[in-house]
Design a binder for these strands. Structure first.
Length: 421
DNA sequence: TCTGGGGTCCTAGGACCC
DNA sequence: TCTGGGGTCCTAGGACCC
């Protein structure tokens, strides 16, 4: 096999730059919900020591000093740009696996006879020309090696954003420079375990003879990764078109200490998630409700973090799932606590088609299905939340989030279309 | 006095990813 | 004032059964 991993460079930042060409050479960063953390940074920002996931308030001063241009996250823009990039990539292979919002694996096995290098450059150039998004490409015999190659493509200035890891000597040389915890699928904790076996680099991992020791510390995943690094394809394609769980959650801009507000928040999360579940044709079997105070140290408040799962007969009826979920809220909510975050995860999702064929039980009445379908249609046409349940509260009590640096909704709002003079 | 062996299924939690 | 939001997969251990 020959895989190419195409990875968009600082994707969210690049999306913002497409509409702000004046920022092409400026350091920029994108912040998470409530402008809490950094979620995307251009290379020059990373070089200042700012890492993805770090809280913004720690670096506020540095950002001011260095003139870093900040953006609040604008996911409507990023998903739209992602769709465009992926659709272009699909022209280059019959087998495209979209791995995340900014990455995809292309099976290029059929192209070995062409000049692979040229083809890859063509992919890179086409994406940039048609979307304005710069991408790096790593090419190798397995997905794990392609991930490593793409990482090298980004790091090595001379690479032009493309790195081929096909020749055995080149692969070995590269692997000896890769720290074990930087391998795709091995994190901090597994990295430490491997160090107890004196394995520090990717090369040391593939040269390690005692497979059972690797399996003991990493589980069978460890051997899969070892094979992949040795050039043996062992990772199956994941089908991500149907989600197995669907989550909706947010941190509050301030804190919430009011039961009614918490009930409304949970109801809204349930409504959002159920709509997404119905949209992918799923029937829901369980809901996990969670809410909690800040996990970070704060002297003035007691801490609590609730995680409760309720299971029920398969259903798509938002009303029913809200009812179950609110009973959890009522049971666990404590007066006087300052809640910082709340959300839900829908689980035990099954395919609606199988249910209709009678393989499983479903408890909803035909009336309820009709109601949900009408609601979804109206909300799709006239906007999110046009029709909602009373338990979600009224719009004026909406819990606002901080988005100090939001960019316009260039592609999803007529009022905010970019203007060309 | 003294308490099997094997199997399946489910769930919670950990680890990892972007 | 202040620390994201979404996912996936694996494993260990409990419940249950014969």
């Amino acid at each position: 096999m020959i895989y190419a991993l195409v990875d968009c460079n600082a994707f969210f930042c690049s999306c913002e730059r497409v509409f702000r060409p004046d920022l092409w050479n400026r350091p920029i960063a994108v912040l998470s919900n409530n402008d809490g953390c950094f979620v995307s940074c251009t290379r020059d920002v990373k070089e200042l020591g700012i890492k993805i996931g770090e809280p913004y308030f720690k670096y506020k001063q540095l950002c001011d000093e260095k003139g870093i241009v900040l953006f609040s996250s604008n996911f409507a823009l990023y998903t739209d740009m992602s769709d465009r990039v992926m659709s272009i990539l699909s022209r280059f292979t019959p087998d495209l696996e979209v791995y995340s919002v900014d990455e995809a694996f292309l099976d290029l096995s059929g192209f070995v006879n062409r000049s692979l290098n040229k083809y890859v450059e063509e992919i890179q150039n086409t994406v940039f020309k048609l979307t304005g998004i710069p991408v790096s490409v790593g090419v190798a015999k397995t997905k794990t090696l392609a991930k490593i190659a793409a990482g090298l493509a980004k790091r090595e200035i001379t690479s032009g954003g493309v790195k081929m890891l096909l020749d055995g000597d080149v692969v070995n040389k590269s692997l000896s420079k890769i720290k074990v915890e930087d391998i795709w699928g091995i994190g901090k904790s597994s990295g430490l375990k491997l160090k107890t076996l004196q394995i520090r680099s990717a090369k040391e991992l593939i040269d390690y003879k005692n497979d059972s020791a690797i399996q003991r510390v990493l589980g069978k995943n460890g051997l899969t990764i070892k094979d992949e690094l040795s050039g043996i394809c062992s990772i199956k394609e994941r089908d991500c078109s149907i989600k197995k769980s669907i989550q909706s959650s947010r941190s509050f801009a301030g804190t919430v200490s009011d039961l009614r507000l918490m009930r409304e928040t949970i109801s809204k999360h349930i409504s959002t998630a159920c709509e997404r579940a119905r949209a992918q044709g799923s029937v829901i079997g369980s809901a996990e409700i969670f809410f909690g105070t800040t996990p970070f140290s704060s002297e003035d408040s007691r801490q609590q973090f609730v995680h409760e799962t309720v299971s029920f007969n398969l259903s798509t009826d938002t009303r029913k799932i809200i009812k179950y979920s609110l009973s959890v809220v009522d049971e666990w909510f404590r007066d006087g606590l300052k809640y910082k975050k709340a959300g839900i995860t829908l689980g035990k999702l099954s395919d609606n088609k199988n249910i209709q064929l009678g393989l499983f039980e479903k408890s909803d009445s035909p009336k309820s299905e009709k109601l949900m379908s009408v609601m979804d249609k109206i909300n799709a046409k006239d906007g999110e939340g046009t029709l909602r349940f009373a338990s979600c509260g009224t719009a004026d009590r909406e819990i606002r989030s901080f988005k100090e640096f939001r960019s316009p909704k260039y592609q999803s709002s007529w009022k905010e279309l970019p203007k060309v003079f």
